[in-house]
Amino acid sequence: MSIGLFFQMLIISVFVNNFVLSQFLGICPYMGVSKRLDSAIGMGAAVIFVMTLASAIAWILESYFLLPSPNNIWFMLFGDGNNYSAFDFTYLRTIVFILSIAALVQLVETFMKKFTPAMYELLGIYLPLITTNCAILGVVLLNVKTFTSGEGRLLKYLTNALGAGLGFTLAIVIMAGIRERMDEVIQYIPKPLRGSALTFIIAGLLSLAFMGFVGF
């Protein structure tokens, strides 16, 4: 994969197909953790980290365990040597990917606690929330469905995951910045609109702004 294609993919997934504002993935943490700027940055970093790792693991699972190919482990163990099309386990994707993400999050948490306590302090409380963040499973499933050709697939998975994570971080940091400023003028806002209702309307305005990147 050329460096040009790398940046092109990155920019498309950060701005044009922003995960939160144009694909509706990861809305729950977006609404929940965007009250303060520092926690928004922590959540964003944790998401980038887990997304990229999860995509790498999904690549291993997809190419060696699920897809019917000469490299399929089950085919190598139990196959007759020439007919691998019977070893198609792609219908198990959902269950395999969500369990691998859950296990990955648990492992990352344990490792961080033991070896990098400083980083654990920073990201620790956001990690358990990530298992049920649909952006992680979303990026893995989108990768698997979009990049089906074999050539340089791992790099494409990783680039797309990195871009999606950066896009999520960008969106949540902008939102946290706006909400922190919003606290100063909260008394002028009608009561029913305060809190989540207003957050949604701000998200709508941000989404309109990001649409400019698509070129409507």
Partner: peptide, 25 residues
């Protein structure tokens, strides 16, 4: 057109939420 686009989804949910909050109050 805006209501079919992603932005419209956020606006609709935000305004409906405000409406439900108002009714509860």
């Amino acid at each position: 057109l805006v209501f079919i686009l992603p932005a419209g989804a956020f606006f609709t949910l935000g305004i409906l939420l405000a409406f439900f909050n108002y009714m509860r109050e």
